[in-house]
Design a protein around this nucleic acid. Structure first.
Length: 213
DNA sequence: ATCCCGAGGG
DNA sequence: CCCTCTGGAT
């Protein structure tokens, strides 16, 4: 596995490469990030950002979303895929947020997971980016792939295991930003297909490079 | 054919 | 662990 020095070296190198560890989903309010993340399932952030202005323009508040016609939501989000399940979840979660949480997106994993269509990925994004909780690890497709290649994890693709393994080795105050940077690096350099190892400054610490690349 | 900052159900 | 849900880009 990886030494503590290697982990910190990777953390620092990613900081240099991507100074601002930002989420690339556009949003203004917490519930807008929540639903943008739901829409991002098997869909690029870029495409999500093309439909959310229309969705949140037509339904500007949680109340509007809670009372929205499902088929109208389906049309607005159609191009993101899985549109039936996503539309159903967005309206149902809006209702639960109003009925049980006073319209405030909750700040605990337990409560977030009760919301329809909210899994660990979405919940962690809210805990990290909205509430700035320490020790948040967002195990999405990029995080899972890059962590495995670098050798930060044992190669598992199970999000819960990746989450647990990263939480053990990352400084809690760095973990959330680190995951955002993995996403940025996963898009720019360490793509799923044809990773550009020649352009990658993480090579000194990367198992994938020393192995099969 | 494979991938995109997944979630839910079996 | 597996499968399904769905569209768009490469």
């Amino acid at each position: 596995m990886k030494s503590e020095q290697d982990v910190l070296a990777i953390v620092e190198e990613l900081k240099k490469l991507y100074p601002e560890a930002i989420c690339s989903l556009d949003y203004q309010k917490p519930h807008e990030l929540l639903f943008a993340t739901r829409l991002a399932a098997q869909c690029t952030d870029e495409r999500v950002n093309k439909v959310t202005p229309g969705l949140y323009g037509r339904f500007p508040t949680l109340e509007a979303l809670a009372n929205a016609d499902i088929s109208e939501v389906e049309e607005l989000i159609h191009s993101t895929g899985f549109f039936r399940a996503k539309a159903r979840d967005i309206v149902a979660a809006s209702r639960m947020l109003l009925d049980e949480y006073g319209g405030v997106v909750p700040d605990t994993m337990e409560d977030l997971l009760r919301l329809p269509g909210v899994g660990r990925k979405t919940a962690n994004l809210i805990l990290g980016d909205v509430y700035h909780k320490p020790g948040v690890v967002v195990a999405d497709t990029h995080c899972i792939r890059l962590s495995g290649r670098l050798g930060l994890t044992d190669g598992t693709k199970d999000p819960a295991k990746v989450e647990a393994q990263l939480r053990k080795i990352l400084p809690p105050e760095e973990s959330n930003d680190f995951c955002h940077r993995l996403v940025l690096h996963g898009r720019a350099v360490c793509m799923a297909r044809g990773p550009e190892c020649a352009n990658c400054t993480l090579r000194p610490w990367c198992d994938f490079y020393s192995g099969s690349c």
